[in-house]
Design a protein around this nucleic acid. Structure first.
Lengths: 145, 145
DNA sequence: TATATTTCCTAGTTGTATGGTAGGTTTTAT
DNA sequence: ATAAAACCTACCATACAACTAGGAAATATA
């Protein structure tokens, strides 16, 4: 019941891009340094984001990555489902129509559905812009202290 | 981000006991047949429930297992945390005090905390008695149809 | 045009967890 | 005495996690 590094790194990468949107592309090397993440591994995670069109890559010197949309138009759910696969607590909830033989009489299914709804509610209603706001709130607090 | 068979089987075992509380102990063999689960594997899961005092075992012929409390006094959270370990989406939330170096400045932490709260809210407020109720509602519906 | 810098791609590698199977030992009702 | 149940430990195959490694392709700049 854990989110793996793929999902976590993907979110941190996207957030890093959102926080450094100067117009210049952001290099993996810089993100991996700031986030203290293996750059070669981050590369592979970012490849997923790139292939899905979540980011645009610019190759060569002065290259890097930029967001393709406004931060408010990325939900955590989108990023997590791309990198982690479905985010359901039990596999049978992944399909539109439950394929499990026992589904009709499965009592626990109701419970899992409620858990799934609770998870989806959070991840589908939190955007990258929300995290950027959190970051700005934290910075403001530091200045006060 | 999945609940493993350990947690799922544990819940189904507990529910099976709750639904067959005739006073007589319930055998693993019967539960595994009803639930279509490997009995030797279920044994190992049930051992955890037994050691934690969630169920009481009676050995020998006519033996089996019985619940030690009222179904309303078991939450899904208790059963899942026993069998799955902590139920947090990211490891750093498992400790009372966050041990991660980056915790102070970690923006994503707020998001993970919200997700954790949503999960805990469901699993800590759903009891075995709630599942029993669901089962009875399902049976009632079948009779109507 | 040469060079350096960046992304892109693929193939390992190591460790750990999952979901069992297998085979016996102990307890105990009949 | 017997059989039925729980109890216990060891093993095993597979998959996934979280990387490391090494090069190929693209391209800005000198």
């Amino acid at each position: 019941m854990k989110v793996s590094t793929k999902g976590r790194y993907a979110i941190r990468f996207m957030l890093d891009l959102a926080l450094h949107n100067t117009g210049e592309p952001v290099r993996i090397k810089d993100v991996s340094a700031r986030q203290e993440i293996s750059d070669k591994y981050l590369e592979q995670v970012v490849a997923m984001l790139n292939k899905a069109g979540f980011v645009r890559s610019i190759r060569g010197p002065q290259g890097g990555y930029v967001l393709t949309r406004d931060p408010k138009d990325y939900t955590m759910g989108q990023i997590l489902r791309l990198t982690e696969g479905d985010m359901v607590p039990v596999a049978c909830l992944a399909d539109e129509v439950n394929q499990c033989d026992r589904a009709d009489s499965c009592v626990t299914l109701h419970f899992w559905k409620r858990l799934d709804d609770a998870i989806s509610d959070v991840i589908d209603h939190t955007t990258l812009a929300d995290l950027v706001e959190d970051e700005q709130a934290m910075l403001a607090n530091n200045y006060v202290i």
